[in-house]
Amino acid sequence: MSVSFCGLELAHPVINGSGTFDVPAARRAFGQALDHAFPFAAFVSKTITLSPRAGNPPPRLWEAPAGLINSIGLPNRGLEGYLEHDLPELSKLNVPLITNVMGSTAEEIAELAQACDERGEIAAVELNVSCPNVKTGLDIGSDPAQLERVVAAVRPALRKPLIVKLTPNCADVAACAQAAQDGGADAVSLINTLRAMALTPGARGRRPSPPAAPSGPVAGLRAWLGGGSGGLSGAAVRAVALAQVAAVAGRVAIPVVGMGGIQSADHARQLLDVGATLVAVGTESFRDPAAGERIARGLRDS
């Protein structure tokens, strides 16, 4: 069952999606039982940015048909806080640590990557490219040419494996994967959440209304989420993930981490069958924190 991924030897092919599992909080809820049965073969941190972020105003969640829309807004302590407070906690895990980072310019990302490169506790870096370019407003990861430039600019700052987390909100995800590979990425991971929104239930509903979103594509509408729009995950996106992972694995030579709506070993097996080297579990961990272990066991037994 063990699997080699970018030079890391992992006990099994199941890891977590960035931002779907908080180790310090889980230790408060489950104590040492968490570390005794840690469900993932490697741990991916939530997204770290240079400066601290409080995250989006609530409401941050909406239950969609067979899925979840979230608009969390990447709350984190910032790079300095991560290295000082989070890293000591995360380095107690007995699995490799992958740190996910995001910046709005290549320089910012390179600074984050270099800081991660200097810390022995970090085994690899995952780059979240679902971030708007400050000049164009377009997500860095949605335009292949821009993505290749950014990855190529960041690559020299990092000797460790670089994973690019692709966005599904683009015209051609395989072209974006190719661009990441050409820029020097060691692996790609997908899918991130699909852009989605929810409206506040009408006056007949019992739910009180938050104020309308202050800006963005839904200004003036009664958007439920405090951030305006959000990202869809869960069973609702599983078929989309299968198509995108298959397209990417068919295009690039570097390893692929497949994710999107995995709830069982069978779902994980499908992504491995279309070419993924690893799979990541996200929203299913919300429903059962031990889901990763259950899925890994199911893969082992099948």
Partner: peptide
């Protein structure tokens, strides 16, 4: 509103 109950999703926050 809460997706996980154990601090993973950051969805249930209040100011």
């Amino acid at each position: 509103g809460m997706a996980c109950g154990f601090g993973a999703c950051f969805g249930c926050v209040v100011p």
